[in-house]
Simulated scan of single mutants.
Amino acid sequence: MKRFLSAAALAFAVVITAAQVAFAQVPSDARFAATTLNLSAYGDVKAAPDMATITLGVQTEAATAALALAANAEQMNRVMAALKRDGIAERDIRTAQLNVNPKYVYEQNQPPRLTGYDASNQVTVTVHDLKRLGQTVDAAVGAGATNVNSVAFGLSDPTAAQDAARLAAVRALQAKAELYARALGHPVVRLVSLSEGASFAPPVITEPVMVAQSRMVQPTPVSPGELQVRIQVSGVYELAR
Rank of each mutant, 00 (worst) to 15 (best):
S6N: 11
T53L: 07
A9G: 15
S199P: 00
A66C: 00
T159R: 07
V204R: 02
A169S: 02
P102S: 11
Q122V: 08
A164P: 00
Q122S: 06
V209F: 12
A65K: 03
V26N: 13
V105T: 14
T60H: 03
L155H: 12
F4I: 14
R215S: 05
A152D: 02
E238Q: 13
G87L: 08
Q162M: 13
L239W: 07
L114C: 07
S234V: 03
V189T: 12
L5R: 03
P208G: 07
K46Q: 07
K131V: 11
L5C: 07
T124D: 13
R215K: 07
Q108G: 11
A47Q: 12
I54L: 15
A22M: 14
A82Y: 03
V45T: 13
R91T: 11
H128K: 15
E196Y: 14
V209W: 14
P112V: 04
D44L: 10
P203C: 12
A8C: 13
R94I: 15
N72K: 06
Y106R: 14
I16A: 03
R31A: 11
A164D: 02
A63C: 03
G197I: 12
A9Q: 09
T146W: 07
A62E: 03
I16H: 00
D163F: 02
A240F: 14
A152C: 07
